[in-house]
Write a protein that binds this DNA or RNA. Sequence first.
DNA 1: GACTAAATTTACAGTGTGTTATATAATCAA
DNA 2: TTGATTATATAACACACTGTAAATTTAGTC
Lengths: 197, 197
Amino acid sequence: MENRTSRTDPRILRTRQLLKDAFVELLEEMEIEKISVNRIAERATINRVTFYLHYKDIPDMMEKMADEMNEDLKRILSEELRDPTATTDEDWPMMVNLLEHIAEHAKFYKVILASRRTPIFTERMLKLLTEVITARVDKLGSESSVGTTGVQKDIAIWYGSSALIGTIVSWLRKDMPYTPAFLAKQFSLIRSPQKKK
Amino acid sequence: MENRTSRTDPRILRTRQLLKDAFVELLEEMEIEKISVNRIAERATINRVTFYLHYKDIPDMMEKMADEMNEDLKRILSEELRDPTATTDEDWPMMVNLLEHIAEHAKFYKVILASRRTPIFTERMLKLLTEVITARVDKLGSESSVGTTGVQKDIAIWYGSSALIGTIVSWLRKDMPYTPAFLAKQFSLIRSPQKKK
DNA sequence: GACTAAATTTACAGTGTGTTATATAATCAA
DNA sequence: TTGATTATATAACACACTGTAAATTTAGTC
């Protein structure tokens, strides 16, 4: 019989925390390609061999860190997942909680989600689509675009462009279940829904 | 005086093409962390030293490939960037061109944009947000959501969830110029614009 | 066909990887 | 507290990858 609350050896917690902190620190300072087990261990003041007692390699470490992040987020999103209609359309309190959590751990999230780590290709494509959306918003003004009344211009641009690239990526991952024309039509429908003319 | 049309030595074109093809092939087969200059050169049947005659390292190679992709995309998006209002809201022909181009070079784009390369953290977060959006669409039905009349359910989900994560990433990159509450409010406005109740 | 530029071959020093075996130190359970 | 257990440190190893240099061969250009 194991201890139900199965506390972990404090040495393990300490070592892992030092390693994770060191990794985040290094990510702030350099591209991920330059980060080695050597450097992480050195920065964490932990022996390199000890790293291998906890993680298979750096990708494995990242996966475990992502798992932990996932658990945190799940807790916040749990209500919403349980009953998506519980909240009014006006507020969306879950979204407030989520953003506050991210803001609180901004150092981590910024480095992990927003660093130049993001694949360079997606990066470039997003940049271009942002230009397109920006041009649209500038010309049309946000009022003509559906669902953007009272919405900050830059936010509308972020929203629109990342929606496009994200959808394209999902579409590719599913091996393009729709024709380009159909998908484009769908985009235009979302942008300006049929008003039964 | 250089040759105006300055044709490049075919050996250079050949070598670079072989290297780029080899890189894409390897990306289909393994995680980027496992790809070395060694492997690329071997797969391309090019001497490893020759790689360094063309690229500084693998990130440099990727950057140059991204530049080339960028040029291709710019050509397609050029009209739209020049005059965003030229096209009707109904069709959006630029989007058709863009998607057709991607479909045509799907092998490249799939590996480059859609591979598991995408940072694991963003990946996880996107997955969670997708669940949230899915739950919403399932319960509310697409008709209640603004701008999604006649829109395929899965596409609406892709669109909504990647818009959210993309906006959050942009917000982080800009060091959170808005409060979480404000941003959340903006999200709810986009979802269901004020109908001046 | 001679000149030029690209690619190959060989070599080398430095760094990182992943794994041993052994020694030391911190924690836990009685 | 004491003894057993478990985590960490240390030293050492074979191997792979990096980035660069020098000399040579091969292919393209004019």
